[in-house]
Design a protein around this nucleic acid. Structure first.
Lengths: 108, 108
DNA sequence: CATTTATGGACAAATAAAGTCCAAAAAAGT
DNA sequence: ACTTTTTTGGACTTTATTTGTCCATAAATG
């Protein structure tokens, strides 16, 4: 069967997949994105975080959804935070409630 | 009926509640916590974020659970991020999956 | 082997956040 | 109404975090 859980790979892994599937070296993609190859290598291994601008350029360059990339990156950040802070998973539910609350605050 | 949704107030609001219920002025609590009253005021209104150390001292001073305060603060941060980045709520589910994945990585 | 490609670490630059100081506003007390 | 205490706001400094670069080395490729 084909590998199915593509959805839960990290932003960096996703980026590397896009690049290797396009059969392009770091150097070349880095140049296109206007950054150092070393930095791109680090981003692919999640040692550095992409800026919003970079996410946009990646989406454009590989012709994938910018919003999806952003969401992917953001969920990475949240997951990483929970793991490193050793927090309870339930806080995600609480966060969800708070988001709803904050959004109603803004409108109503 | 009594106010029930105490669980979803922000860290700052919680801190202020603790202080006002103890009928203590900012000045005094700030001194105890070793920070400037102005900073404490800002933290209570979520204009500044508490450090881990401060959370610990708050828990100790008001005799409440440090872990709960930490969780409260962390869920604040996550909710705030989602709102400001205008991200989809579904990323919380994705984040949850990623946490599970990361945790199994660590052990297995 | 030679050449290209990818990684690691040390460092510099930039960005962001904490925290302070002081003045002004608000609240409480007399 | 006046005084005193408490709280807030903003400008500013300091500290910490993060990005990004450079260069040397390792790994892979031809």
């Amino acid at each position: 069967m084909p590998t199915a859980k593509l959805k839960f790979i990290s932003f960096g892994e996703h980026l590397r997949t896009l690049r290797t599937e396009a059969v392009l070296p770091l150097r070349e993609v880095a140049t296109q994105l206007g950054i150092d190859p070393s930095l791109l290598a680090k981003i692919e291994r999640n040692q550095r975080q992409p800026t919003k601008q970079l996410i946009k350029e990646v989406a454009c360059f590989f012709n994938v959804s910018e919003r999806e990339l952003q969401n992917e990156f953001l969920s990475d950040q949240i997951a990483y935070k929970i793991v490193t802070e050793d927090a309870d998973l339930e806080i995600l539910k609480v966060a969800e409630q708070k988001v709803s609350y904050l959004k109603t605050q803004r409108n109503g």
